[in-house]
Design a protein around this nucleic acid. Sequence first.
RNA 1: GUCCCCAUCGUCUAGCCGGCCUAGGACACCACCCUUUCAAGGUGGCGACACGGGUUCGAAUCCCGUUGGGGACGCCA
Length: 476
Amino acid sequence: MDIPPVKTRFAPSPTGRLHAGNMRTALFNWLLARRHAGAFVLRIEDSDTRRNDPSALDAIQADLQWLGLDWDEGPGAGAPADWQQSSRASVYSDAAERLIAADAAYPCFCSATRLAALRERQRRSGQPPRYDGHCAGLDPVQSAARRAAGEPAVLRLRMPDAGTIDFHDLVRGPQSVRAGELGDPVILRADGSAAFLFANALDDALMGITHVLRGEDHLSNTPRQQVLLRRLGLPVPAYGHLALLVDTEGAPLSKRRGDASIAGLRDAGYRPEALLNYLARLGNPVPDDRLRAAAELAADFDPAALSRSPARFDDHQLDHWQSLAMAAAPMESLRPALEPGRVPMGREADFLALVQPNLRFAAELNDWARRFFDAADVVPGESAAPLREAGPAFFETVAGVLETTDSVDWQQLRPSLEAATGRRGGAMMKPLRLALTGLGQGPALGAIIDLMPAEIRRARLQKAAAVAASGVEPDA
RNA sequence: GUCCCCAUCGUCUAGCCGGCCUAGGACACCACCCUUUCAAGGUGGCGACACGGGUUCGAAUCCCGUUGGGGACGCCA
Protein backbone atom coordinates (compact mmCIF):
# COMPACT_ATOMS: atom_id res chain seq x y z
CA MET A 1 0.00 0.00 0.00
CA ASP A 2 1.08 3.48 -0.75
CA ILE A 3 2.14 5.88 1.94
CA PRO A 4 0.89 9.27 0.82
CA PRO A 5 3.71 11.64 -0.03
CA VAL A 6 4.55 14.11 2.70
CA LYS A 7 3.94 17.74 1.95
CA THR A 8 4.64 20.36 4.57
CA ARG A 9 4.54 24.12 4.56
CA PHE A 10 5.68 27.25 6.26
CA ALA A 11 3.08 30.01 6.12
CA PRO A 12 4.30 33.26 7.64
CA SER A 13 2.42 36.51 7.47
CA PRO A 14 4.44 39.28 5.86
CA THR A 15 4.17 41.57 8.85
CA GLY A 16 7.75 41.63 9.99
CA ARG A 17 11.05 39.87 10.11
CA LEU A 18 11.50 36.22 10.96
CA HIS A 19 12.87 35.47 14.39
CA ALA A 20 14.37 32.33 15.88
CA GLY A 21 10.97 30.95 16.82
CA ASN A 22 9.46 31.32 13.35
CA MET A 23 12.57 29.99 11.76
CA ARG A 24 12.60 26.92 13.95
CA THR A 25 9.02 26.20 12.90
CA ALA A 26 10.05 26.56 9.27
CA LEU A 27 13.06 24.33 9.84
CA PHE A 28 11.05 21.55 11.48
CA ASN A 29 8.59 21.53 8.61
CA TRP A 30 11.43 21.47 6.12
CA LEU A 31 13.13 18.66 8.05
CA LEU A 32 9.93 16.62 8.04
CA ALA A 33 9.45 17.07 4.31
CA ARG A 34 13.05 16.21 3.49
CA ARG A 35 13.06 13.26 5.82
CA HIS A 36 10.33 11.66 3.76
CA ALA A 37 11.53 12.95 0.42
CA GLY A 38 8.39 15.07 0.32
CA ALA A 39 7.70 18.64 -0.67
CA PHE A 40 8.03 21.87 1.27
CA VAL A 41 5.79 24.82 0.47
CA LEU A 42 6.27 28.49 1.27
CA ARG A 43 2.95 30.29 1.44
CA ILE A 44 2.47 33.91 2.34
CA GLU A 45 -0.51 34.62 4.55
CA ASP A 46 -1.24 38.21 3.74
CA SER A 47 -4.94 38.09 4.50
CA ASP A 48 -4.64 40.96 6.93
CA THR A 49 -3.88 43.68 4.46
CA ARG A 50 -3.61 46.41 7.06
CA ARG A 51 -0.60 44.85 8.71
CA ASN A 52 1.27 43.78 5.62
CA ASP A 53 4.77 45.09 5.21
CA PRO A 54 5.82 45.16 1.55
CA SER A 55 9.47 44.59 2.33
CA ALA A 56 8.75 41.57 4.50
CA LEU A 57 8.19 39.20 1.60
CA ASP A 58 11.73 39.56 0.33
CA ALA A 59 13.15 39.49 3.82
CA ILE A 60 11.41 36.22 4.64
CA GLN A 61 12.74 34.57 1.51
CA ALA A 62 16.22 35.88 2.14
CA ASP A 63 16.22 34.54 5.68
CA LEU A 64 14.99 31.11 4.59
CA GLN A 65 17.52 30.90 1.79
CA TRP A 66 20.31 32.00 4.06
CA LEU A 67 19.65 29.05 6.30
CA GLY A 68 19.45 26.75 3.30
CA LEU A 69 15.75 25.99 3.51
CA ASP A 70 14.57 25.63 -0.06
CA TRP A 71 10.92 25.36 -1.05
CA ASP A 72 9.35 23.38 -3.84
CA GLU A 73 6.29 25.58 -4.15
CA GLY A 74 5.96 29.26 -3.38
CA PRO A 75 7.52 32.55 -4.41
CA GLY A 76 9.90 31.99 -7.29
CA ALA A 77 9.38 28.24 -7.27
CA GLY A 78 6.76 27.87 -9.96
CA ALA A 79 3.35 26.33 -9.55
CA PRO A 80 1.07 26.93 -7.90
CA ALA A 81 1.23 30.61 -8.69
CA ASP A 82 -1.17 31.57 -5.95
CA TRP A 83 0.97 31.05 -2.89
CA GLN A 84 -0.29 34.41 -1.83
CA GLN A 85 -3.56 34.46 0.07
CA SER A 86 -4.51 37.88 -1.18
CA SER A 87 -4.84 36.47 -4.66
CA ARG A 88 -7.15 33.69 -3.60
CA ALA A 89 -10.15 35.70 -2.45
CA SER A 90 -12.58 33.89 -4.73
CA VAL A 91 -11.50 30.52 -3.38
CA TYR A 92 -12.54 31.61 0.08
CA SER A 93 -15.81 33.22 -0.90
CA ASP A 94 -16.80 30.15 -2.91
CA ALA A 95 -16.12 27.90 0.04
CA ALA A 96 -18.05 30.28 2.28
CA GLU A 97 -21.08 30.06 0.00
CA ARG A 98 -20.96 26.30 0.14
CA LEU A 99 -20.83 26.44 3.92
CA ILE A 100 -23.84 28.77 4.04
CA ALA A 101 -25.76 26.60 1.66
CA ALA A 102 -25.11 23.59 3.90
CA ASP A 103 -26.08 25.65 6.95
CA ALA A 104 -22.62 24.96 8.33
CA ALA A 105 -22.03 28.68 8.62
CA TYR A 106 -24.29 31.63 9.33
CA PRO A 107 -24.13 35.42 9.16
CA CYS A 108 -23.70 37.20 12.47
CA PHE A 109 -24.86 40.79 12.85
CA CYS A 110 -23.61 41.34 16.36
CA SER A 111 -21.81 44.62 16.79
CA ALA A 112 -18.34 44.92 18.17
CA THR A 113 -19.88 46.73 21.10
CA ARG A 114 -22.21 43.89 21.94
CA LEU A 115 -19.42 41.37 21.63
CA ALA A 116 -17.17 43.37 23.92
CA ALA A 117 -19.92 43.72 26.50
CA LEU A 118 -20.65 40.02 26.26
CA ARG A 119 -17.03 39.09 26.88
CA GLU A 120 -16.83 41.46 29.79
CA ARG A 121 -19.96 40.03 31.36
CA GLN A 122 -18.76 36.46 30.92
CA ARG A 123 -15.37 37.23 32.35
CA ARG A 124 -16.85 38.92 35.38
CA SER A 125 -19.11 35.99 36.12
CA GLY A 126 -16.24 33.57 35.93
CA GLN A 127 -17.18 32.24 32.51
CA PRO A 128 -14.74 31.85 29.66
CA PRO A 129 -15.41 34.54 27.07
CA ARG A 130 -16.83 33.06 23.94
CA TYR A 131 -19.50 33.81 21.39
CA ASP A 132 -22.94 33.02 22.76
CA GLY A 133 -24.58 31.99 19.50
CA HIS A 134 -26.81 35.03 19.46
CA CYS A 135 -27.22 34.94 15.68
CA ALA A 136 -26.95 31.19 15.30
CA GLY A 137 -30.67 30.65 15.22
CA LEU A 138 -31.60 33.42 12.82
CA ASP A 139 -33.78 32.53 9.87
CA PRO A 140 -31.51 32.02 6.83
CA VAL A 141 -33.90 33.78 4.49
CA GLN A 142 -34.17 36.85 6.71
CA SER A 143 -30.44 36.88 7.25
CA ALA A 144 -29.83 36.79 3.53
CA ALA A 145 -32.20 39.71 3.10
CA ARG A 146 -30.46 41.76 5.77
CA ARG A 147 -27.12 41.07 4.17
CA ALA A 148 -28.51 42.00 0.77
CA ALA A 149 -29.76 45.24 2.26
CA GLY A 150 -26.20 46.05 3.19
CA GLU A 151 -26.27 45.36 6.90
CA PRO A 152 -22.72 44.52 8.01
CA ALA A 153 -22.21 40.93 9.02
CA VAL A 154 -19.46 38.44 9.59
CA LEU A 155 -19.73 34.78 8.79
CA ARG A 156 -19.43 32.30 11.63
CA LEU A 157 -18.74 28.60 11.47
CA ARG A 158 -21.30 26.49 13.26
CA MET A 159 -19.53 24.27 15.77
CA PRO A 160 -21.09 21.14 17.19
CA ASP A 161 -22.45 21.77 20.65
CA ALA A 162 -22.14 18.29 22.06
CA GLY A 163 -19.63 15.49 22.08
CA THR A 164 -15.90 15.75 21.64
CA ILE A 165 -13.62 16.55 18.78
CA ASP A 166 -10.69 14.19 18.67
CA PHE A 167 -7.48 14.32 16.73
CA HIS A 168 -3.99 12.98 16.89
CA ASP A 169 -1.34 15.60 17.39
CA LEU A 170 1.98 14.78 15.73
CA VAL A 171 3.94 15.88 18.78
CA ARG A 172 1.46 15.68 21.63
CA GLY A 173 -0.39 12.52 20.79
CA PRO A 174 -4.15 12.00 21.15
CA GLN A 175 -6.17 15.12 21.86
CA SER A 176 -9.77 15.46 22.83
CA VAL A 177 -11.69 18.71 23.09
CA ARG A 178 -15.24 19.09 24.38
CA ALA A 179 -17.20 20.68 21.58
CA GLY A 180 -19.20 22.82 23.95
CA GLU A 181 -16.08 24.71 24.94
CA LEU A 182 -15.68 26.18 21.52
CA GLY A 183 -17.57 29.24 20.40
CA ASP A 184 -18.52 29.69 16.76
CA PRO A 185 -15.48 31.33 15.16
CA VAL A 186 -15.57 34.08 12.56
CA ILE A 187 -14.43 32.80 9.19
CA LEU A 188 -15.31 35.79 7.01
CA ARG A 189 -14.81 39.36 8.17
CA ALA A 190 -17.43 42.03 7.60
CA ASP A 191 -15.50 43.23 4.57
CA GLY A 192 -15.78 39.75 3.08
CA SER A 193 -12.14 38.81 3.57
CA ALA A 194 -11.20 35.44 4.99
CA ALA A 195 -10.07 35.18 8.58
CA PHE A 196 -6.88 33.27 9.34
CA LEU A 197 -8.64 30.19 10.59
CA PHE A 198 -10.53 29.84 7.33
CA ALA A 199 -7.92 30.79 4.75
CA ASN A 200 -5.23 28.82 6.46
CA ALA A 201 -7.20 25.56 6.70
CA LEU A 202 -8.55 25.90 3.20
CA ASP A 203 -5.16 26.54 1.71
CA ASP A 204 -3.63 23.59 3.49
CA ALA A 205 -6.34 21.27 2.24
CA LEU A 206 -6.39 22.65 -1.29
CA MET A 207 -2.64 22.60 -1.64
CA GLY A 208 -2.50 19.01 -0.52
CA ILE A 209 -0.57 19.70 2.66
CA THR A 210 -0.32 16.46 4.61
CA HIS A 211 1.54 17.53 7.75
CA VAL A 212 1.56 20.83 9.58
CA LEU A 213 3.99 21.66 12.34
CA ARG A 214 3.04 24.97 13.93
CA GLY A 215 3.26 26.89 17.19
CA GLU A 216 1.39 25.74 20.24
CA ASP A 217 -0.65 28.91 20.00
CA HIS A 218 -2.54 27.24 17.16
CA LEU A 219 -3.54 24.20 19.14
CA SER A 220 -7.04 25.46 19.86
CA ASN A 221 -7.55 26.24 16.19
CA THR A 222 -7.16 22.62 15.27
CA PRO A 223 -10.61 21.34 16.25
CA ARG A 224 -12.19 24.32 14.49
CA GLN A 225 -10.22 23.77 11.34
CA GLN A 226 -11.04 20.10 11.46
CA VAL A 227 -14.76 20.80 11.66
CA LEU A 228 -14.43 23.33 8.86
CA LEU A 229 -12.63 21.01 6.51
CA ARG A 230 -14.92 18.08 7.24
CA ARG A 231 -17.96 20.20 6.45
CA LEU A 232 -16.35 21.06 3.15
CA GLY A 233 -15.48 17.46 2.47
CA LEU A 234 -11.81 18.30 2.27
CA PRO A 235 -8.88 16.27 3.60
CA VAL A 236 -7.63 17.27 7.04
CA PRO A 237 -3.84 17.43 7.37
CA ALA A 238 -2.10 15.98 10.41
CA TYR A 239 -1.19 18.76 12.82
CA GLY A 240 1.65 18.88 15.32
CA HIS A 241 2.07 21.65 17.85
CA LEU A 242 5.44 22.93 18.91
CA ALA A 243 6.12 24.38 22.31
CA LEU A 244 7.06 28.00 21.92
CA LEU A 245 10.53 29.43 22.32
CA VAL A 246 11.20 31.71 25.26
CA ASP A 247 14.04 34.13 25.89
CA THR A 248 16.70 33.95 28.57
CA GLU A 249 14.30 35.35 31.14
CA GLY A 250 11.69 32.77 30.26
CA ALA A 251 9.43 35.29 28.55
CA PRO A 252 8.05 34.44 25.12
CA LEU A 253 10.23 35.49 22.22
CA SER A 254 8.78 38.67 20.90
CA LYS A 255 8.86 39.92 17.36
CA ARG A 256 8.29 43.41 18.61
CA ARG A 257 11.35 43.44 20.82
CA GLY A 258 13.38 42.12 17.94
CA ASP A 259 14.49 39.12 19.97
CA ALA A 260 16.84 36.93 18.02
CA SER A 261 15.76 38.22 14.64
CA ILE A 262 17.33 36.19 11.87
CA ALA A 263 18.55 39.28 10.09
CA GLY A 264 20.09 40.54 13.32
CA LEU A 265 21.90 37.28 13.90
CA ARG A 266 23.16 37.23 10.34
CA ASP A 267 24.37 40.81 10.58
CA ALA A 268 26.12 40.00 13.83
CA GLY A 269 28.21 37.49 11.91
CA TYR A 270 26.62 34.18 12.81
CA ARG A 271 27.05 31.48 10.22
CA PRO A 272 23.94 29.77 8.88
CA GLU A 273 25.27 26.32 9.80
CA ALA A 274 25.60 27.50 13.39
CA LEU A 275 22.04 28.77 13.64
CA LEU A 276 20.74 25.73 11.80
CA ASN A 277 22.42 23.31 14.18
CA TYR A 278 21.33 25.23 17.23
CA LEU A 279 17.72 25.66 16.16
CA ALA A 280 17.48 22.02 15.12
CA ARG A 281 18.43 20.96 18.63
CA LEU A 282 16.17 23.30 20.56
CA GLY A 283 13.51 21.06 21.99
CA ASN A 284 14.64 18.29 19.70
CA PRO A 285 17.02 15.62 20.93
CA VAL A 286 19.80 15.12 18.39
CA PRO A 287 22.14 12.41 19.67
CA ASP A 288 25.12 13.70 17.72
CA ASP A 289 27.05 16.60 19.23
CA ARG A 290 28.91 17.45 16.07
CA LEU A 291 28.00 20.06 13.50
CA ARG A 292 25.59 18.37 11.09
CA ALA A 293 24.43 19.25 7.61
CA ALA A 294 20.74 19.97 7.11
CA ALA A 295 20.21 16.72 5.25
CA GLU A 296 21.80 14.75 8.08
CA LEU A 297 19.55 16.47 10.59
CA ALA A 298 16.56 15.55 8.45
CA ALA A 299 17.51 11.89 8.33
CA ASP A 300 16.29 11.14 11.82
CA PHE A 301 13.84 13.93 12.46
CA ASP A 302 10.78 12.72 14.35
CA PRO A 303 8.03 15.10 15.50
CA ALA A 304 6.92 12.67 18.18
CA ALA A 305 10.29 13.07 19.90
CA LEU A 306 9.93 16.83 20.20
CA SER A 307 9.81 18.42 23.62
CA ARG A 308 6.43 19.57 24.83
CA SER A 309 7.69 22.24 27.16
CA PRO A 310 8.98 25.65 26.10
CA ALA A 311 12.68 25.85 25.26
CA ARG A 312 14.94 28.77 26.03
CA PHE A 313 16.88 30.52 23.32
CA ASP A 314 20.35 30.70 24.85
CA ASP A 315 23.10 32.84 23.32
CA HIS A 316 25.81 30.72 24.96
CA GLN A 317 24.70 27.62 23.14
CA LEU A 318 24.37 29.47 19.87
CA ASP A 319 27.92 30.72 20.36
CA HIS A 320 29.14 27.17 20.78
CA TRP A 321 27.72 26.17 17.42
CA GLN A 322 29.15 29.32 15.95
CA SER A 323 32.61 28.37 17.20
CA LEU A 324 32.30 24.92 15.68
CA ALA A 325 31.05 26.43 12.45
CA MET A 326 33.93 28.89 12.32
CA ALA A 327 36.47 26.18 12.95
CA ALA A 328 34.96 24.00 10.25
CA ALA A 329 34.53 26.80 7.76
CA PRO A 330 36.42 26.41 4.49
CA MET A 331 39.08 29.07 4.30
CA GLU A 332 37.55 30.39 1.11
CA SER A 333 34.34 31.24 2.94
CA LEU A 334 36.30 33.47 5.30
CA ARG A 335 38.04 35.51 2.64
CA PRO A 336 35.07 37.73 1.71
CA ALA A 337 34.95 39.05 5.25
CA LEU A 338 38.50 40.28 4.95
CA GLU A 339 38.63 43.84 3.72
CA PRO A 340 40.81 44.26 0.64
CA GLY A 341 44.34 45.41 1.28
CA ARG A 342 44.36 44.39 4.93
CA VAL A 343 46.79 41.56 4.34
CA PRO A 344 49.88 41.88 2.12
CA MET A 345 49.99 39.96 -1.11
CA GLY A 346 50.84 36.33 -0.72
CA ARG A 347 50.31 36.25 3.03
CA GLU A 348 46.58 35.66 3.09
CA ALA A 349 46.59 31.89 3.37
CA ASP A 350 49.11 31.89 6.21
CA PHE A 351 47.24 34.62 7.97
CA LEU A 352 43.87 32.89 7.72
CA ALA A 353 45.28 29.57 8.83
CA LEU A 354 46.90 31.15 11.86
CA VAL A 355 43.94 33.18 12.99
CA GLN A 356 40.96 30.97 12.11
CA PRO A 357 41.01 28.85 15.30
CA ASN A 358 40.76 32.03 17.33
CA LEU A 359 37.78 33.49 15.53
CA ARG A 360 34.24 33.60 16.68
CA PHE A 361 33.13 35.88 13.87
CA ALA A 362 34.69 36.29 10.46
CA ALA A 363 34.74 40.07 10.79
CA GLU A 364 37.34 39.70 13.52
CA LEU A 365 39.79 38.91 10.75
CA ASN A 366 40.08 42.59 10.03
CA ASP A 367 41.08 43.38 13.56
CA TRP A 368 43.76 40.72 13.53
CA ALA A 369 44.96 41.91 10.14
CA ARG A 370 45.24 45.43 11.47
CA ARG A 371 47.27 44.24 14.41
CA PHE A 372 49.59 42.21 12.23
CA PHE A 373 50.04 44.39 9.20
CA ASP A 374 48.91 47.95 9.88
CA ALA A 375 51.50 50.48 10.99
CA ALA A 376 48.97 52.24 13.20
CA ASP A 377 49.48 52.00 16.91
CA VAL A 378 47.80 49.06 18.66
CA VAL A 379 48.89 49.46 22.24
CA PRO A 380 46.03 50.71 24.38
CA GLY A 381 46.81 53.18 27.14
CA GLU A 382 45.54 50.97 29.92
CA SER A 383 48.07 48.29 29.10
CA ALA A 384 51.00 50.56 29.89
CA ALA A 385 51.65 49.00 33.29
CA PRO A 386 52.92 45.61 32.03
CA LEU A 387 55.06 47.39 29.48
CA ARG A 388 56.63 49.56 32.17
CA GLU A 389 57.24 46.51 34.26
CA ALA A 390 59.25 44.99 31.42
CA GLY A 391 61.12 48.24 30.99
CA PRO A 392 62.24 50.03 27.82
CA ALA A 393 65.49 48.08 27.66
CA PHE A 394 63.59 44.84 27.18
CA PHE A 395 61.90 46.05 24.02
CA GLU A 396 65.06 47.62 22.69
CA THR A 397 66.91 44.37 23.24
CA VAL A 398 64.22 42.36 21.45
CA ALA A 399 64.29 44.81 18.59
CA GLY A 400 68.04 44.42 18.40
CA VAL A 401 67.85 40.65 18.26
CA LEU A 402 65.16 40.80 15.59
CA GLU A 403 67.31 43.17 13.52
CA THR A 404 70.40 41.02 13.62
CA THR A 405 68.79 37.60 13.28
CA ASP A 406 67.88 36.54 9.83
CA SER A 407 65.97 33.54 11.12
CA VAL A 408 62.48 34.01 12.42
CA ASP A 409 62.21 30.33 13.13
CA TRP A 410 60.73 30.29 16.58
CA GLN A 411 62.75 27.27 17.69
CA GLN A 412 65.90 29.29 17.25
CA LEU A 413 64.57 32.73 17.91
CA ARG A 414 63.12 32.01 21.32
CA PRO A 415 66.43 30.92 22.93
CA SER A 416 68.15 33.94 21.42
CA LEU A 417 65.54 36.27 22.87
CA GLU A 418 65.73 34.61 26.24
CA ALA A 419 69.48 34.87 26.32
CA ALA A 420 69.48 38.49 25.26
CA THR A 421 66.69 39.73 27.52
CA GLY A 422 67.28 37.54 30.52
CA ARG A 423 63.56 36.82 30.61
CA ARG A 424 61.83 33.58 29.86
CA GLY A 425 58.39 32.04 29.66
CA GLY A 426 55.53 34.32 30.45
CA ALA A 427 57.86 37.04 31.66
CA MET A 428 59.11 37.35 28.13
CA MET A 429 56.08 36.32 26.12
CA LYS A 430 53.43 38.41 27.80
CA PRO A 431 54.98 41.86 27.40
CA LEU A 432 56.17 40.92 23.95
CA ARG A 433 52.72 39.78 22.86
CA LEU A 434 51.21 42.93 24.27
CA ALA A 435 53.74 45.17 22.54
CA LEU A 436 53.28 43.43 19.20
CA THR A 437 49.52 42.94 19.09
CA GLY A 438 48.09 45.11 21.83
CA LEU A 439 46.28 42.06 23.18
CA GLY A 440 46.91 39.59 25.95
CA GLN A 441 45.77 36.62 23.93
CA GLY A 442 45.80 35.25 20.45
CA PRO A 443 47.47 32.75 18.16
CA ALA A 444 50.95 31.36 18.80
CA LEU A 445 53.40 34.21 19.35
CA GLY A 446 56.21 32.70 17.28
CA ALA A 447 53.95 32.44 14.27
CA ILE A 448 52.81 36.00 14.77
CA ILE A 449 56.39 37.27 14.76
CA ASP A 450 57.04 35.26 11.65
CA LEU A 451 54.03 36.67 9.85
CA MET A 452 54.44 40.26 10.93
CA PRO A 453 56.49 42.45 8.59
CA ALA A 454 59.84 43.52 10.04
CA GLU A 455 59.06 47.22 9.87
CA ILE A 456 55.81 46.77 11.77
CA ARG A 457 57.58 44.80 14.47
CA ARG A 458 60.21 47.49 14.71
CA ALA A 459 57.62 50.25 15.04
CA ARG A 460 55.64 48.35 17.66
CA LEU A 461 58.71 47.64 19.76
CA GLN A 462 59.79 51.25 19.56
CA LYS A 463 56.42 52.39 20.66
CA ALA A 464 56.40 49.90 23.52
CA ALA A 465 59.82 51.07 24.66
CA ALA A 466 58.58 54.65 24.62
CA VAL A 467 55.52 53.78 26.66
CA ALA A 468 57.62 51.79 29.09
CA ALA A 469 59.98 54.73 29.55
CA SER A 470 57.26 57.34 29.81
CA GLY A 471 55.86 56.75 33.23
CA VAL A 472 58.50 55.32 35.51
CA GLU A 473 56.03 55.91 38.29
CA PRO A 474 53.02 53.76 37.54
CA ASP A 475 49.91 55.49 38.71
CA ALA A 476 49.31 54.30 42.21
C1' G B 1 -11.25 34.65 35.48
C1' U B 2 -12.27 29.76 32.72
C1' C B 3 -10.15 25.76 29.99
C1' C B 4 -5.79 23.06 28.03
C1' C B 5 -0.63 21.66 28.12
C1' C B 6 4.16 21.13 30.48
C1' A B 7 7.73 20.26 34.77
C1' U B 8 15.36 16.00 35.15
C1' C B 9 21.94 19.81 36.30
C1' G B 10 22.12 27.51 35.39
C1' U B 11 20.73 26.12 29.77
C1' C B 12 19.39 22.20 25.75
C1' U B 13 18.33 17.32 26.83
C1' A B 14 18.78 11.16 27.57
C1' G B 15 15.91 8.21 30.63
C1' C B 16 9.76 8.09 31.38
C1' C B 17 4.81 0.58 29.09
C1' G B 18 8.75 0.95 37.50
C1' G B 19 14.13 -2.24 39.13
C1' C B 20 20.03 -2.19 34.32
C1' C B 21 20.01 5.40 37.45
C1' U B 22 25.08 5.87 43.44
C1' A B 23 20.31 9.66 36.79
C1' G B 24 23.90 9.78 30.95
C1' G B 25 25.50 13.60 27.17
C1' A B 26 26.24 18.70 25.32
C1' C B 27 26.67 24.16 26.51
C1' A B 28 28.26 27.35 30.40
C1' C B 29 31.48 27.42 34.70
C1' C B 30 35.96 25.64 37.39
C1' A B 31 40.60 22.82 37.46
C1' C B 32 44.48 20.40 35.13
C1' C B 33 47.38 19.17 30.61
C1' C B 34 49.57 21.21 26.24
C1' U B 35 51.95 25.83 24.71
C1' U B 36 58.62 27.50 29.16
C1' U B 37 52.76 33.10 27.50
C1' C B 38 47.59 33.62 26.64
C1' A B 39 43.81 32.13 23.37
C1' A B 40 42.61 27.78 20.58
C1' G B 41 42.86 22.37 21.59
C1' G B 42 42.79 17.97 25.11
C1' U B 43 41.39 15.73 29.99
C1' G B 44 38.67 15.96 34.35
C1' G B 45 35.40 18.27 38.05
C1' C B 46 31.03 20.93 39.78
C1' G B 47 25.92 20.37 38.94
C1' A B 48 19.22 18.11 38.50
C1' C B 49 14.70 14.04 39.06
C1' A B 50 10.03 21.42 41.67
C1' C B 51 7.30 20.21 46.40
C1' G B 52 3.80 17.07 49.20
C1' G B 53 1.00 12.80 49.41
C1' G B 54 -0.11 8.04 47.66
C1' U B 55 0.33 2.89 44.72
C1' U B 56 4.38 -0.83 44.96
C1' C B 57 8.99 -5.42 47.57
C1' G B 58 10.89 -1.24 44.63
C1' A B 59 9.25 5.39 41.40
C1' A B 60 12.82 10.28 37.88
C1' U B 61 9.55 6.75 35.73
C1' C B 62 2.29 5.28 37.65
C1' C B 63 -1.90 8.28 40.43
C1' C B 64 -3.64 12.76 43.21
C1' G B 65 -2.72 17.61 45.05
C1' U B 66 0.33 22.08 45.49
C1' U B 67 3.61 25.35 43.26
C1' G B 68 5.82 27.17 38.94
C1' G B 69 5.99 27.93 33.56
C1' G B 70 3.54 28.04 28.74
C1' G B 71 -0.85 28.34 25.64
C1' A B 72 -6.09 29.42 24.38
C1' C B 73 -10.48 32.15 25.10
C1' G B 74 -10.40 38.50 18.66
C1' C B 75 -13.80 40.90 12.42
C1' C B 76 -4.50 39.03 14.92
C1' A B 77 -2.05 35.50 12.64
